[in-house]
Structure formats: structure tokens, C-alpha cells
Computed example of a mutant assay.
Amino acid sequence: MLLEFNAQARTLQGTGASRRLRKSGRVPGVVYGGDKAAQAIDIDHNEIWHKLRQEVFHASILTLKLDGAAESVLLRDVQMHPFKRQILHLDFQRVDAKQAIHLKVPLHFINSEIAPGVKLQGGIVSHVINEVEVKCLPADLPDFIEVDVKDLSAGHSIHLSALVMPKGVEVVAHKGEDPVVVTIVIPRGAASDEAAAAEAPAEKK
């Protein structure tokens, strides 16, 4: 999937210049890293707004088309207005094809409806973690990591260490940590009903 966006070099900087840019429908930003100096840029607000609504745009190598030249970049930061539907500033980092990158990738959970904990025990799938930080070369970066819960029973969990990573991709985690990614829990009301049903025959005796 080709993910590209257009930008132009920004010469005027400062609070006043950025405010005027935003009023004209542009978003100030910066692209940095690699063997080049940081470059101030501005982007069409409407174009980038729709791009940002795509999950894949936040976890992929992007093509920045800057004044006719193309560069590979990662989206590193988005500053939003506290209450308006407005992007205030964007940060992008240049990508070197030969250097490993660190990026958070979304998790996609599959087969929830056929998990024993849901289908047979009336449980609810609880997503504890929705994204995971990975390390890999740019060419190996996945759009998402799949988590299959088809064998998960109520009261059981899948931990970070159990995730199957694509070739060339490794999870970035603190030493000794293995957090829960997803679990299946029984709703309180359902658990109470089951307990009451179990006690009912004993009361009749």
C-alpha cells in the first residue's frame, strides 16, 4: 500500500507565521534525521487530516513528496488542538533503509467469536494492549500484528511473549516484563447467575 503525502518547504517560522499558516488551511511541521539538516515544512490540512484517520498511516513507512523530491519518513508526533478538529503540528523522521527502526504497531485480534471463553462460557474479550513496539528494518515493518484468540478460555490470557512476530521483527520490551495482551473475562452478572443456578438444586433437597 503506497502511503504518500505532499508538503512544501517552509521558510517563515515562529508563532505568528504558524498561526497564519493554519488560518490558510496549512499545517506546520518538521522532518528531521538522517544525514540532512532538519527541514521545516507545511502540509495541506484537509489532505493530512484524512490520512491520519487511517490506522496504517501511523505505523508505516510514508513517502513524503517535498517540492518534487520523495523521501521515506515515519510519523513521530501529532499535536492536536485541545477541542477543535484541527492539527497544530506534525513531526516526521527520515528513514534509512539499512538502519533498524522502533515503531508502535497496532494489534489485530481475530477469531474472538469462536473462542471457547466467548462461545461456550459467555465471556467477553478484553484487549489489555492494543499496540506493541517493534524493532526491525524498514522493509520488514508490518502494518499490524495478528493475535489469534481461537483457543482462549475464560480466565485465561495471552501474554506478549506468545505473539507470533513476522520474520525480521522483534518485540521491544523491558527485561523481565511479559504483560498480558488479551484476556477473556466473565461478566459479574453472568458469574452471579451461574453461582445461583449451581446452588438452586442444593436448596431443593
Rank of each mutant, 00 (worst) to 15 (best):
A69C: 08
G16T: 15
M1D: 15
R20L: 14
V27D: 04
Q99T: 12
E131Q: 09
A70Y: 02
Q99C: 04
F144S: 07
D67P: 01
K119Q: 09
I110M: 03
K175H: 10
L75M: 03
A17Y: 03
H102R: 09
R94S: 13
A162G: 09
L90W: 08
G176D: 11
V182T: 11
A40Y: 01
G16Q: 10
L3W: 10
W49V: 14
M165C: 15
Q99G: 03
S153W: 04
L2F: 11
F144T: 02
D151C: 07
V132I: 15
P187Y: 06
F57K: 06
A200E: 13
P187H: 09
P187K: 08
N6L: 12
A7Q: 01
V180N: 05
Q8L: 09
Q13C: 05
F83G: 12
G123S: 02
A59S: 15
L160W: 05
V182K: 01
P116Y: 07
M165F: 12
A200S: 11
S157V: 10
F92I: 10
K167R: 09
D35Q: 13
V169C: 06
K98E: 15
N111R: 04
I158T: 12
H81Y: 04
F144I: 02
D35L: 06
H81N: 10
T63M: 10
D91Y: 08
I186Q: 05
S24C: 12
S126A: 14
I114T: 11
A195F: 04
I184E: 04
R19H: 13
K36M: 11
I43V: 12
K135L: 06
V181F: 02
V185D: 08
L103A: 02
P28T: 14
A38F: 04
V31P: 01
P138H: 05
E170K: 06
V182W: 01
R19I: 13
H102T: 13
Q121S: 11
H108L: 09
V185M: 07
S153C: 13
S18D: 09
A139E: 08
A9I: 14
S161T: 05
V78H: 03
Y32P: 04
D44K: 02
H58Y: 09
H159G: 10
L88Q: 08
L160C: 13
M1C: 13
Q99M: 08
I43T: 06
H102K: 07
G68C: 07
P179S: 15
D42R: 01
V95R: 00
H102W: 03
G34S: 11
L163S: 10
I41T: 04
P187D: 10
V149R: 01
E146R: 01
H159S: 14
S153Q: 13
F83Y: 15
S192P: 00
T63H: 07
V172C: 10
R22D: 11
V30Y: 03
A198Y: 02
S161H: 03
A197E: 12
D140W: 00
V182Y: 01
E55F: 00
L120W: 05
L160G: 09
P82H: 03
E203W: 03
D77I: 04
R85M: 13
M165N: 14
P142L: 02
L107C: 05
V172K: 02
A69D: 12
D148T: 12
K36F: 14
V180Y: 03
K36C: 11
N46Q: 13
E170C: 05
V27C: 04
F83E: 10
A69F: 05
K150P: 01
M165P: 08
V164G: 08
K205Q: 15
R10T: 06
D178E: 11
I61Y: 01
